[in-house]
Amino acid sequence: MSAMTAPILETRRLTVRFGGLVALDGVDVAVGPGETLGVIGPNGSGKTTFFNALTGLYTPAAGEIVFGGRRVTGLEAHAIARLGIARTFQASRLCLALSVFDNILIGMHARRTTGLADSVVRRWRFRREMGAALERAAHLLALFSRELPGRGFEPVGQLPQIDRRRVEICRALAAGPTLLLLDEPSAGMNPEETAELMRDLQIVRAEMPGLSVIIIEHDMFVIEGVSGRVVAFNYGRKIAEGSFAAVAAHEEVRQAYLGTERARA
């Protein structure tokens, strides 16, 4: 990490245990404002556990998470989300029966200013806010595709896979986060779709230069293409950190992915 301004997110000796299993073992990671950090590692190395700990779905057994200068360790998931951490999931977690707009609008839940009384009796206030929210949702969709905003009131289950992934990214962006966590966005995509995804991520980068991103990926082309710095996990520990080239050449990383000399022999 270059000498930079105060990191937006910093974990110190972050540890997550499930009974006797140490899923995350004393991980130190820092992300600066506007930086994109890639996270790689073999299956079961603790990458998604890391995200789940950051977003409050898992409670760390030890260590701490500092976000925006605030200690957020042990806060509930919704409280952390409100502070400005948004995420996507490896397996899509959209509500398929709800409309495309609904799936994005829920991302703006924490930013709403109208309450129950506004929804029922002072409906004009709610309508004004919702009108702006719908416009914002359409604007986010338009970043990725020209036809998606027109399909806003269709159930999201009717969209193809790549568009669902886009809706999920829109939902995360709708929250207006300062840190975006992308959990293997290219999972289950063919090479053409992955190329489209790369383009989408570059659009996000260009539109929101101040946004910090952590991206978990198995596809090394995606990692190389979008992230400035890379950390590698294995068995819940951070084993390498640096530029993509440096991490890819790192001895322990090569062993984690390819096995040791002895194992191959």
């Binding site: 998931a77 977690r93 129950l116």
Partner: peptide, 25 residues
């Protein structure tokens, strides 16, 4: 009116996917 508002949307999301809803605040 409650159903067609932030409340109805939040409750629908909680019903369909609790984790996604919590991660949206």
């Amino acid at each position: 009116r409650l159903h067609d508002s932030w409340l109805g949307l939040a409750l629908n999301t909680l019903r369909d996917d609790e984790i996604a809803a919590r991660c949206c605040g």
